[in-house]
Design a binder for these strands. Structure first.
Lengths: 227, 227
DNA sequence: GGAACACTTCGACCGACGCCGAAGCGTGCC
DNA sequence: GGCACGCTTCGGCGTCGGTCGAAGTGTTCC
């Protein structure tokens, strides 16, 4: 397998839509993916066979359904980096407002961390008070930030010992700005779930901010998250 | 611009070969790129126009030559992550031995750090003596490693304060194993150049290990780099 | 057993795109 | 000026692959 083959696999609109739908790590049935891509089941079937054959997708049978998911975080990372290039190359364009995915824009999961307006606001808040310092290729937590995060219930030392990139800016495709990924991003996300400030919406990447979370975000980070 | 468009751009063999040739950050002329891709200049011209139009490549006129390079490290990162997926998906295959790119396999630059047998050996040496601990998504330097690297002339604290990913495993496409990227990868590379242990070959990604470097690598890291 | 359902396989159609030859444009060298 | 050179534009050719209808396989439910 070479670069061109991988590019080709992603380079079809229908397949790209399927992959995007799978980007949050959930597994979807062939039918659902066909619907996502706006094509007939038999067409989807051939696409899925290609993606699976190339090892981008993993499949699991369950009764008469076939569930597909991204085969590894490596694939998710690749798609993410491709989306970043998309967003960077088209920095200024009229934002196509769509009612339907307003919720998705507000807050969603991006593999294992938070994205959307919420994710970006959180990154902004931490940057504004000098807690983290983000650059193109990574980021650091300042001594001040260490203290702020500790008060919020996040042990930076423990996170930084994980064998993964500690802090990484991840370009948000809806907001065209960065949110925080890496161990810190996951840590923040986990903490918000633990506190009950946010919760997942079934069968969706959408994340709901609870009333309690709205109060907490306002008080702790001065974030006014829209209802 | 969307995911599929980017995929499509990379998804052509000729374009993929051009992009790969540009992956070390150098700028090449349209003619050189045509040669790399094994196509006629007029065909290359249309490919390059597409890549440039999409913002993946930047162009600079110089006399009657046109120099093309990757427009940003973001693009390089994307290509790298795509190559990783290529390599992961095809883990075991008969290695196609080619005399021509033996040098390239032995040691080369990968954007801003070292790759090839040399890069992998270095990563192995550091891992073996417990200096670094690499995982799928990142890596850490142990206290022991901090000491080893300090003796070698690398200030880990300074590197870790850079606003980029500190240590990241980068899958080596020729060796199918990891070498070290990120700030640490660049730090190692810089140090080897400063010591005069390695040097660039003009107009190529190939890196030559000097006799002095061969001795040094053997003594310091117990690496027997082939001549 | 039979019907509904999820999905796959096969075959035919057709549009998109990569390819090169020929010709045109701008630059540098003698 | 004249020629060589690097590159681009244009036009026609060929092929590859995405598309869907029809038919087939396997599963669930009654």
């Amino acid at each position: 397998m070479n670069l061109a083959e991988v590019g080709n696999l992603v380079g079809d609109l229908a397949r790209a839509q399927m992959l995007t739908a799978l980007l949050d790590g959930r597994a979807l049935t062939a039918g659902e993916l066909a619907w996502c891509a706006g094509i007939m089941p038999q067409t989807a079937s051939s696409h899925l066979a290609k993606l699976q054959g190339a090892g981008l997708l993993a499949m699991e049978k369950q009764g008469r359904h076939r569930y597909f998911r991204l085969s590894s975080p490596t694939v998710a990372a690749m798609l993410e980096s491709m989306q970043v290039v998309c967003a960077v190359d088209a920095p200024r364009r009229i934002r196509p407002e769509s009612r339907m995915d307003r919720d998705l824009r507000m807050a969603r999961s991006c593999y294992d961390h938070l994205a959307g307006v919420l994710g970006v606001s959180l990154a902004d808040a931490l940057t504004d008070r000098g807690a983290v310092d983000l650059a193109a290729d990574g980021g650091v937590v300042t001594p001040v930030g260490r203290k702020i995060l500790a008060e919020f219930g996040i042990d930076v030392d423990q996170l930084s010992q994980q064998k993964r990139c500690f802090c990484r800016p991840c370009l948000d495709w809806s907001e065209r700005r960065h949110h925080i990924a890496g161990a810190l991003g996951k840590g923040l996300s986990d903490r918000l779930f633990d506190l009950g400030w946010v919760e997942r919406i079934r069968d969706s990447r959408v994340i709901r901010v609870t009333p309690e979370g709205r109060r907490g975000l306002k008080k702790t980070f001065a974030i006014d998250h829209p209802a």
